[in-house]
Write a protein that binds this DNA or RNA. Structure first.
Length: 890
RNA sequence: GGGCGGUUAGCUCAGUGGUAGAGCACCGGCUUUACACGCCGGCUGUCACAGGUUCGAAUCCUGUACCGCCCACCA
């Protein structure tokens, strides 16, 4: 009488949200500083409040969730802290785009109203993100959720800013910066993305003043010539040696420029002479400083030409380029134009071509912060996984420039600096000052900080820093950071620098870098390609468990993930397989039957074998997770569950479980034990279906392990993660089982080859079986009958040859299956020949090895022994096959 | 220009010195009472190329080719 009736497909839509709500309600994911258990901490890379999560987020949440659930089940006090990032420029752009649709700009509604509007959007976006995280099953501690603009996090930002300023590590100054004319803000070097562009190299002739001749310069940006204040050549360049120190006349504007010598100039490139525009090129800016050249800004913050551009004033910079080229041509100053490919900087957020401009901005001095951050990774206080990412990190860290942190935006942390109108003083304070020491009124800086400034503090600002909270004391440094490769520089590097400086220690011990999720052909997902996968839709279709499993199985370290439909389908089918195997187990149970105890050492081979295997598997899965081999953990579980537990164990155990008496009791006990354990092993990866089933398994009181706070219902999410049980390890059972499986498979293969239906019983005669083999197959007699349709099993020392009997060689046993009226001699001979060819080839290879005295002398003893044993076996097989062939061809 | 990764079955990928693997796809057969999102059986490979080390190389070393990613102030 089945205890349960359940659908044959797992109804994730009805089940998943129910369990997340349950876990939430019992506080299963809440960290407990008073627990006395070892702490294990991760902070979630806070998603931007720009909308919804994409498939990359799904991966970056699934992997840490697996770790969090696993460590929790291992008994750690897990804190996985969630939150979101205000994402300054990105979020501001989203809301500006919304306004644009209404025909308005942020200036139309003003700073205050604009900020209010962004707050509304951020709140909505946060709600969406939280919903998605719950759907995915992320086991974060919602009671500690943070947002980078929260009051206490903003206080941390001010504390860090003020401290760095007072130590001279933050400074304000007029330098050349990357400027986005569309966003109308300065950008850091990282926010500029370089793209290969087809451009032109314009050769422009600058006439010498006071004597004959000219110097031709090559430039990709002719419009900037209007701001030239010199021409530079290399000091050793003989072509221009005489010209150094003389003056040139700037075409179009007629200003005079000096010719200077500078080692920066590469005589090999272009004409070997470079126009110098200190106001619009970073190199020229430096060169200008070396030669004390004036800066003439000809492009303004909107990308238009300034008054200094003379007749071109007011033109957009692209129109100005065309106009300048035309004018140069007219004047006869344009010598030639060549095609030229080069990298052009674009704004990361809006793709506008970045304009280098001289502007007053705030900077963080990087060198003093970078040094300890490099050391921390070098001496392994922080470990990168995969390790090779450390190289990338070093590469970047040793070459970075100071960090421009001021942004001319409205959405973000306002820089805590005040300017006095009466004197020149700048006040940098954590709390808003009343007035200047001189009595003058104060104006706060209108700029906000780069969003990554606050993100860099995330591991400790979220725990209450600078207040010395209990959480900070217990959970910092965090144990592990799992994040994407795209933000190693933006975020990881800055967390390390700022964590060491302000957190007093590394922000995390290990940083695991996840790969990019791509489409099934390895293409980057993008809206324009139309290959974007929406994780919410996908989860609705196949369930969160299936998506999680697919991502996990594909998460090979250091490799991008090609997410294919086939994999997703396979993953869904696996979840369904778990569901159906669970249904089977539950259907075997009878009402009010207590869960029996697993005997120390069951007599039945199948039980001993599966206990051996689950024990091995437990160790393997634990090891895999320990080394971040998520793919290995998923693969081992998949293979075990489907191709060992379901395909073999469940099939083998059916008759026992359906019998009566002690055999049934043992079978039910082992079945439940293994099922319980494998569900727990699977739970970190596929939390929902495992909880749904686990809740229905009967439990013995002394095995109750799913501790919950306050003694509520049990939950698998707090049950113990299985480990290897040494008493169950049984290599003998493994060998016996392998032999039985090989026999059953061989017989099934014969049936398939000759089209013998299962309905037709067959006789199997085993020739030459050793005592061991004989006892193995004798014991498995019933299994052979049930799983291979063997009606009669005989053992003989010598079997008379019969052309209507199919013979197969299985190790040292010859397997005879009489199939009168079915066997075709020629087809059979062809099969034997093929098998023989294989054996001959292998035998030859092994024999060659053994014939080599160096092999015997130098190879490991066990390898030699193994080869010898194999070659003996192969010789036997070969002889047997040759005999068969001879008989068949007779 | 510099750095990093990849090249293994039709596709997507495991496999770090000892007889080449998985999933999907494909072929054949199954109304076997957990599952057709299933069961049983099967086919599939110059492990990119060229050298080297080694008794032995997909695996270690050197070089080449191709693909991808990141960084970069040669106008």
């Amino acid at each position: 009488m089945p205890k349960v009736e359940l659908s044959t497909t797992f109804a994730h839509r009805d089940v998943d949200s129910k369990w997340y709500a349950f876990w939430d309600s019992i506080g299963a994911f809440r960290a407990d500083p008073t627990s006395g258990r070892p702490p294990f901490t991760m902070v979630l890379p806070p998603p931007n409040v720009t909308g919804r999560l994409h498939i990359g987020h799904a991966l970056n949440q699934t992997l840490p969730d697996i770790i969090a659930r696993w460590r929790r089940m291992k008994g750690d006090d897990v804190l996985w802290l969630p939150g979101t990032d205000h994402a300054g420029i990105a979020t501001q752009n989203v809301v500006e785009a919304q306004l644009a649709k209404e025909g308005k700009s942020r200036h139309d509604i003003g700073r205050e109203a604009f900020e209010a509007r962004v707050w509304d959007w951020a709140r909505e976006s946060k709600g969406t993100i939280i919903g998605q995280m719950r759907t995915l099953g992320s086991s974060v501690d919602w009671s500690r959720e943070r947002f980078t603009l929260d009051d206490d996090l903003s206080r941390a930002v001010r504390r860090v800013f003020v401290t760095l300023y007072r130590e001279g590590l933050i400074y304000r100054g007029k330098y050349i910066v990357n400027w986005c004319p569309r966003c109308r803000t300065a950008l850091s070097d990282l926010e500029v993305v370089h793209r290969e562009t087809h451009g032109k190299l314009y050769h422009v002739r600058y006439p010498l003043v006071g004597r004959e001749g000219s110097i031709t310069v090559a430039t990709t940006r002719p419009e900037t010539m209007l701001g030239d204040t010199a021409v530079a050549v290399h000091a050793d360049d003989e072509r221009y040696r005489d010209a150094v120190g003389s003056r040139l006349r700037l075409p179009l504007l007629g200003r005079e420029l000096p010719v200077v010598a500078d080692d920066f100039v590469d005589p090999e490139f272009g004409t070997g002479a470079v126009k110098v525009t200190p106001a619009h090129d970073p190199n020229d800016f430096e060169m200008g400083k070396r030669h004390d050249l004036p800066q003439v800004a000809v492009i303004d913050e909107d990308g238009r030409m300034t008054e200094a551009a003379g007749p071109f004033a007011g033109l957009d910079r692209w129109k100005a380029r065309a106009a300048v080229v035309q004018a140069l041509e007219r004047e006869g100053a344009l010598e030639k134009v060549e095609d030229h490919r080069h990298a052009v900087g674009h704004c990361q957020r809006c793709r506008t071509v970045v304009e280098p401009l001289v502007s007053t901005q705030w900077f963080v001095k990087i060198a003093p912060l970078a040094e300890p951050a490099i050391d921390a990774v070098r001496d392994k206080r922080i470990r990168f996984v995969p390790e090779h990412w450390a190289k990338t990190y070093f590469e970047w860290m040793t070459n970075i420039h100071d960090w421009c942190i001021s942004r001319q935006l409205w959405w973000g942390h306002r820089i805590p600096a005040w300017y006095c109108d009466a004197c020149d003083r700048i006040l940098v304070e954590e709390e808003t000052p009343d007035r200047c020491a001189c009595g003058g009124a104060l104006r706060q800086e209108t700029d906000v900080l780069d969003t990554w400034f606050s993100s860099g503090l995330w591991p400790f600002s979220t725990m209450g820093w600078p207040t010395p909270t209990a959480d900070l004391e217990r959970y910092y440094p965090t144990t592990l950071m799992i994040t994407g490769l795209d933000i190693i520089f933006f975020w990881v590097a800055r967390m390390i620098m700022l964590g060491l400086k302000f957190g007093g220690d590394v922000p995390f011990r290990t940083v695991y870098i996840t790969s990019l999720v791509r489409d099934e052909h390895g293409q980057k997902m993008s809206k324009s390609k139309g290959n974007v996968v929406n994780p919410l839709e996908l989860m609705d279709e196949i369930g969160a468990d299936a998506l999680r499993f697919a991502l996990t199985a594909l998460a090979s370290p250091g490799m991008d993930i090609a997410l294919s439909e086939g994999r997703l389908r396979g993953s869904r089918q696996f979840v369904n397989k778990i569901w159906n195997a669970s249904r089977f187990v539950l259907m075997q149970l009878r009402d009010d039957e207590p869960r029996p105890e697993v005997p120390e050492r069951p007599a039945e081979l199948a039980h001993r074998w599966i206990l051996h295997r689950i024990s091995q598997l437990s160790a393997e899965v634990g090891d895999a997770l320990d080394t971040f081999r998520f793919d290995v953990a998923a693969d081992r579980l998949y293979h075990f569950f489907w191709h060992e537990y379901a395909d073999w164990y469940i099939e083998l155990v059916k008759p026992h479980v359906q019998a009566e008496g002690p055999a049934r009791e043992t079978a039910v006990a082992v079945l439940l034990e293994v099922h319980d354990r494998v569900l727990r092993l699977l739970h970190p990866i596929i939390p929902f279906v495992t909880e749904e089933v686990w809740q229905q398994l009967p439990r013995r009181p002394e095995l109750e392990t799913g501790r919950t706070p306050g003694g509520q219902r049990q939950t698998i999410t707090l049950a113990t993660f299985p480990t290897s049980v040494p008493a169950w390890l049984d290599e003998g059972a493994a060998a016996d089982m392998a032999a039985v499986q090989a026999m059953i498979t061989a017989i099934r293969t014969i049936r398939a080859e000759w089209g013998v239906p299962r309905s037709r019983p067959i006789t199997v005669i085993l020739e030459g079986a050793s005592d061991l083999a004989r006892s193995r197959f004798e014991t498995a007699r019933d299994d052979l009958t049930r799983l291979a349709g063997v009606a009669q099993l005989e053992f003989q020392d010598q079997v008379a040859r019969d052309p209507e009997t199919v013979v197969r060689v299985l190790g040292d046993v010859r397997l005879h299956v009489p199939l009168a009226g079915i066997v075709d001699r020629r087809a059979e001979a062809a099969r034997i020949e093929k098998a023989l060819a294989k054996v001959v080839k292998q035998q030859a290879a092994d024999a060659a090895k053994l014939a080599n005295p160096k092999f015997r002398a130098r190879a490991a003893a066990d390898v030699v022994a193994e080869t010898e044993a194999r070659v003996t076996g192969l010789a036997q097989q070969r002889q047997a096959l040759e005999e068969l062939l001879e008989e068949l061809s007779r």
